[in-house]
Amino acid sequence: MDQNKISETKELGSLLLDVGVSLLSSGASCSRIRITMKRLATTYDHEAHISIAPKSISLTLNDEDDNLLFNGMRSTPAQGVNFKTISGISRLSWDAVENDLSLQQVRDELNRLLSLPHYPRIIILIFVSLAGAAFCFSFGGKPPEMIIAFGATFCGLFIRQEAIKKKFNPYICVFFGSLVASLFAGAFIKAGLNINFEHAFATSVLFLIPGVPLINSFTDLIDGNILNGIVRGINALMFSMAIAFGLLIAMLIYHLN
């Protein structure tokens, strides 16, 4: 086999692994990762065999005659849920199939997708706090409780973002967020305001619920990726326990029962 083809296969393998770990760390389900990688591999005339572990992906590439050409493995970077990456990669894979993009074009597009910015921090803080107030209303809260939920979510999320920046353990980041949010909500109850204790307290920490791991866990279980499903489920459980622990400490501090 000529040198050119070997280097092309290597480039494809490394590209596929980058696509896979970006999807895995942005919160895609296992079947989506597998479909996207296989779709790209087929486009460039290779057959891909993929194994997805909780924090790494391994890949072998065969040619049409089933000769092994490439094998490699990559572990995921630490990164939070990012749906912009997932939708960008999904579009990119279709683009590559339909418009015959070269490997270099796909690589450039992937790098562009990974460098896309998040929403501005103040926008995230305001809209997630609004979501907290909305939760409070849908559980039967009144305007004063909604305002408390807004404030609690704002402070809690701010602290959680700061903790993530300082590279604390992710569960500890959630614990800090939950503690600060419930301390904020509890202060108003302690001040003797006539508000529904349960609505203000229970909804102040809801912005921390691990919605993506929870739903992905079931998606993976249904698709037969049992191991990944269990790992994601336990992960979601650990986050929930961190939330509960923060609430508990706040309740102990305020002597609320």
């Binding site: 990012n82 749906f83 912009k84 929403y119 979501a131 909305a134 912005f207 919605g211 993506v212």
Partner: peptide, 14 residues
Amino acid sequence: GWAALGFGILFNVP
């Protein structure tokens, strides 16, 4: 609807 929108922004949807 607003709660869904807030979480969408938290998850960085397009």
